[in-house]
Structures are given as structure tokens and as C-alpha cells.
């Protein structure tokens, strides 16, 4: 009878020990979660690191590293976030967990503009064949990766593949269409000084560029016509060539700056007014 009582007590003690250990880890995770929800990311990371350190069975590794990654992400420590999500991916115990960690990894890579890395992870997920039912979601993040890389045409193509995703598709298409061709601006100025500036909408600059070219061209040609060859060479080099080349570079710069303004307007819209899922 006493022997049975000992056995019961022993097993109860072991079970209690395991349960309490589990409970302590769960409580620690909940505490970290609470800190995270309050926006106290630094302390959340500390408590999650403590959880990881004491979780010898690695039961909470996935959850802890996911939350740690999110904390780092919210604290804009994107490189640390990548490291955490990668670890979470390694300790995932199901396809669903693996997918969630990978998508977080993609999102952080998009934010830190590691487009190639983001696309590489998406391609890896696609080629694994495990997530065929989540192709729309993968296309969605591929589209965002292209947005952050400034390739709005490719982004539009990706969003176009997703049924019902008209807003981002049309926004990217419109941004792409609104952009100026830097090469065309340059070529126009090569053939007609000031034309590149006209193309980018900088009319006064275009007129001034054309006027300087006509003036310096006249001085150069006049010098040669009056047999002042040395004067002609110097004027051509120091004046005409300077305005001619400067005008070409200027038109390219205008196109580039205009494109930045257009892209920034789109990004600002996505940041402040777009209500869908963002990286």
C-alpha cells in the first residue's frame, strides 16, 4: 500500500514538474507578448531572449523568435529582425509556420530594400510546391518587392495576376506611365538643346539652355569666320561645349528628379491612404 502511495506521489510530482515548467514558459511568453502589445519592444526582446535561454526543449523557439522579429521590426532594427525570422523559419514545426516565418522574412527584406533576397525567398517558396494554394499571396509580396525596387511595371504585372487586386495594379501602372524616360530626355537634348527640358516640363530652363547654346554657338562660328581660330577653339570649349553638355546632363537630371517625385507621391499614398496589407 505504501509502495503504491509512493509511486502515485512520484508520478504526480514528475507530471507537476513538467506541467509547471511548461506553465512558466507560457507565462514568460505571455509577459513578453504583453510588453510587445504595449509597444515596449526593447523589454519584449529581453524577455523573449530569456524565454529562449531557459527553453531547453526549444518548444517556444518558433513563437519567441517570431515575436522577437516583430519587435525588432517595429523598432526598425531590420537586420536583427531578419536574423530572428530566419531562426523562426528554422524552428518551424509545420508548413504553415514555415510559410508565416518566410513571409515575414520577405516583408522585412522588402522594407530594407533587399529586393533580390525577397524575390529569392518567394521563388524558393514557389518552387517547393507546398504553397500552391497561396500563390496570390506570394504574387502580392512580389509586387511590393518590385514597388520598393522602383520597378512599377513589374509590380503592376504581379498585382494583375491577383483576382480583385485592381487598386495596386492600377496605381503601379499609372506610376509607371507617369514616369519620364531619362534616356529620351538626354537624346532630345543631344539633337536640340533645351528639348529634353521641354519634355520634362521645365520650359524656362529649356529656353535658357537653347538661348545659351545659340549665343555661344554664334560666338564660336563668328570667331572661326573671322579667322580667329584660337578664339574659336577656346570659346567652343569653354562656352559652347559647356552649355551643350551641361544641357544634356541637366535634362537627364530633371527626368530623374521628376521620377523621384512621382515615385514618392505613390509611396506616400501607399503609406498614408492605402488600407490593405503592407510590408
Amino acid at each position: 500500500m505504501i509502495k503504491v502511495l509512493y509511486q502515485i506521489l512520484f508520478f504526480t510530482a514528475v507530471i507537476n514538474s513538467l506541467l509547471f515548467s511548461q506553465q512558466a514558459l507560457q507565462q514568460q511568453y505571455e509577459y513578453a507578448e504583453k510588453l510587445y502589445s504595449k509597444g515596449n519592444y526593447f523589454d519584449a526582446v529581453t524577455e523573449l531572449k530569456r524565454l529562449v535561454f531557459f527553453d531547453s526543449a526549444r518548444q517556444y523557439y518558433y513563437k519567441a523568435y517570431m515575436l522577437m522579429g516583430s519587435s525588432y521590426k517595429n523598432g526598425t532594427l531590420l537586420n536583427d529582425a531578419v536574423s530572428c525570422f530566419s531562426t523562426a523559419e528554422r524552428f518551424s514545426r509545420s508548413d504553415d509556420e514555415k510559410y508565416k516565418a518566410s513571409v515575414e522574412l520577405v516583408r522585412v527584406n522588402i522594407l530594407r530594400r533587399s529586393t533580390e533576397q525577397a524575390l529569392k525567398i518567394i521563388n524558393r517558396l514557389e518552387s517547393s510546391g507546398l504553397f500552391k494554394d497561396r500563390q496570390d499571396s506570394l504574387n502580392y509580396w512580389k509586387g511590393w518587392a518590385y514597388i520598393f525596387a522602383g520597378s512599377f511595371d513589374k509590380a503592376s504585372d504581379e498585382f494583375h495576376k491577383i483576382p480583385g487586386q485592381f487598386e495596386l495594379d492600377s496605381l503601379c501602372r499609372a506610376t509607371d506611365n507617369a514616369q519620364y524616360s531619362e534616356r529620351l530626355a538626354k537624346i532630345l537634348s543631344v539633337f536640340l538643346p533645351g528639348a529634353g527640358q521641354f519634355y520634362t516640363g521645365n520650359y524656362i530652363n529649356g529656353i535658357i539652355s537653347l538661348a545659351w547654346n545659340i549665343f555661344s554657338g554664334y560666338l564660336t562660328i563668328n570667331s572661326f569666320a573671322e579667322d580667329r581660330v584660337f578664339d574659336g577653339i577656346v570659346t567652343a570649349n569653354l562656352l559652347w561645349l559647356r552649355f551643350y553638355i551641361g544641357g544634356i546632363q541637366n535634362s537627364e537630371e530633371f527626368a530623374h528628379n521628376n521620377n523621384i517625385t512621382i515615385i514618392n507621391r505613390t509611396l506616400l499614398y501607399l503609406q498614408n491612404e492605402f488600407t490593405g496589407l503592407k510590408p
Partner: peptide, 29 residues
């Protein structure tokens, strides 16, 4: 042994391995 097992069964919080905030564990961490 009997009382120890009884104690552990009734008060599992007394198990030392679970206290992440004990001075030794804080130092280890």
C-alpha cells in the same frame, strides 16, 4: 522522501528549475 514528494506535488512552484528570475539564473542569462 515522502514529505519531499508531497511538497513537490502540492507546491510545484517550489521547483528550482523554473525560477528564471533567481539571482543565479539572472547571472546565467
Amino acid at each position: 522522501v515522502f514529505y519531499f514528494l508531497l511538497l513537490v506535488t502540492v507546491f510545484p512552484a517550489g521547483l528550482p528549475a523554473q525560477d528564471m528570475h533567481s539571482p543565479e539564473n539572472i547571472e546565467k542569462f
